[in-house]
Amino acid sequence: MLVVAEKVSKQFMGSKVLDSVNITINKGDRIAMMGPNGAGKTTLVRAMLGFYHINSGKITVNGHDPVKERVKVLENISFIPQLPPPVKLSIEELLLYIGRSSGIPRERVLQEAGRMDLDIQKHISKPFFKLSGGMKQKLLIAIALSKESDLLIFDEPTANLDPKGREKFYELLTEIDESCSTLFITHRLDEIKGLVNRQIYMDLGKVVEDEKI
């Protein structure tokens, strides 16, 4: 089992954002996670990535605690955030950071980006935040796909993409290794229906539905 979350609760300033959540993610799971705004989806993902100290319960990723052993946990996870962050580093520097910290070869990222019709080389010395919204998103996707991980987490990855970019993105997803699990947070199930084999529905900080499809 890749991720095990048992009775995970998290409060922000007194309000329960995660309320005793139980989830296990196995090898090869392709999950679509849905739920209304504010349901706690992003919070759950951030807890798995070790950003939050949960109030009760337990999370392990590959048997490791995300907070105490964050390096071991993050070595095997690729993550795309909900909104592209306004990183001030140039693309060149960002790729250096990623390459050194996670061992992702730069050429690999350029190649993946190329497959989404993004020519990064042209913008290599631009600050990341000056790219267009869709270009940022594509680069983040290229980075995530280049990283050899057991688990890909996408928090609404297609929000900024034009229809063609979206199509390309889904095409790339079909090539992801069988053994790699994926977790998509999305509001448009129809788009990724063919790519997932399990769907989880969250509301008010609880998992209200979890079924194979």
Binding site: V73, P85, P86, I98
Partner: peptide, 15 residues
Amino acid sequence: ESNVLEYMLSFPVSL
């Protein structure tokens, strides 16, 4: 606040 930290720390770098 701008979630740059979230992204940078989603890579295996120790705190």
